[in-house]
């Protein structure tokens, strides 16, 4: 029953949250990073950008988050974007080594001048969500790679963002840890209903996680294909070994290969 509802939602078009329209991005050194990029992300959607390195996936994320400016084209948000509406998770955990896990997760709220007393419970709640509550006082160097990444995700979620941008967040982790974090991410996404734009170069990861995969080609960076993964959530190990999963992986691999041939 629940599964059916979820499945239907993943196929119905969602109202657009953010859109890149005809975006060009040229770096100062003249490199064309993105050319005529059109990308619309729906509310509560899970979209992956899949492509070879150097295809401008990360640049697209930076444009959406306004960390970088567009050379041409438009960035359209469906509503007002306040500070904290966008969460960003980098490939590295990017934690402050001198601060405890709690202080690292508290950072975005602290920068908005919210007192520790006022939001401490909120930070604890997010730490609970990622299973790091008991490591609240630990320092990043005392954590394993997977735990650091959880802390990084907790920090991105603490402001309850509308959009979570993830730039190959699990690429540096071992496969077992990566699988576990994939599941954790889906669990968080199912509960919180935020939008995820997930950059990856792993075909398997993109199929397992996303509702929609946008395949990108490099030089210049652009979107060449779109694949819908109409599998119901929650997805688990059974999905990972199912025939439809394999079929989507084959399809995505073929698309990626074509994209690499084009660049």
């Amino acid at each position: 029953m629940t599964v059916d509802v979820l499945a239907r939602r993943s196929t119905t078009p969602k109202p657009t949250l953010v859109e890149l329209q005809g975006v060009h991005k040229t770096f100062a050194n003249g490199t064309v990073a993105l050319e005529n990029l059109n990308l619309a992300v729906g509310e509560h959607e899970f979209v992956s950008l899949l492509g070879p390195s150097g295809c401008g996936k990360s640049t697209a994320l930076r444009l959406i988050s306004r960390l970088a400016g567009l050379s041409a084209g438009r960035l359209v948000w469906s509503g007002e974007v306040a500070v904290g509406d966008i969460g960003f998770v980098f490939q590295e955990p990017t934690l402050m080594p001198w601060a405890s896990v709690f202080d690292n997760v508290y950072l975005p709220l602290r920068l908005q001048r919210m007192s520790r007393r006022a939001v401490g419970a909120r930070v604890d709640e997010v730490l609970d969500l990622v299973g790091l509550r008991e490591f609240s006082n630990a320092y990043p160097r005392e954590l394993s790679g997977g735990m650091k990444m959880r802390a990084s995700i907790a920090r991105a979620l603490v402001t309850e963002p509308k959009l979570l941008l993830m730039d190959e967040p699990f690429a540096a982790l071992d496969e077992i840890t990566r699988f576990r974090l994939n599941d954790d991410l889906l669990r968080l996404w199912a509960g919180r209903r935020f939008t995820v734009v997930f950059v990856t170069h792993s075909v398997f990861e993109s199929v397992y996680l996303s509702e929609r995969i946008l395949v990108m080609a490099a030089r210049p960076g652009r979107i060449v294909e779109e694949i819908r993964v109409d599998a119901p959530y929650p997805r688990d190990d059974a999905f990972r070994t199912s025939e439809p999963y394999n079929a989507w992986c084959r399809e995505a691999s073929a698309a990626l290969k074509r994209a690499m041939g084009e660049s």
């Binding site: 960390l67 500070v83 904290g84 980098f90 990017t94 920068l111 908005q112």
Partner: peptide, 12 residues
């Protein structure tokens, strides 16, 4: 760290 600087920028 540059990414931390980006993060600070992101959170205004």
């Amino acid at each position: 760290d540059h990414n931390l600087q980006n993060l600070f920028e992101l959170y205004g």
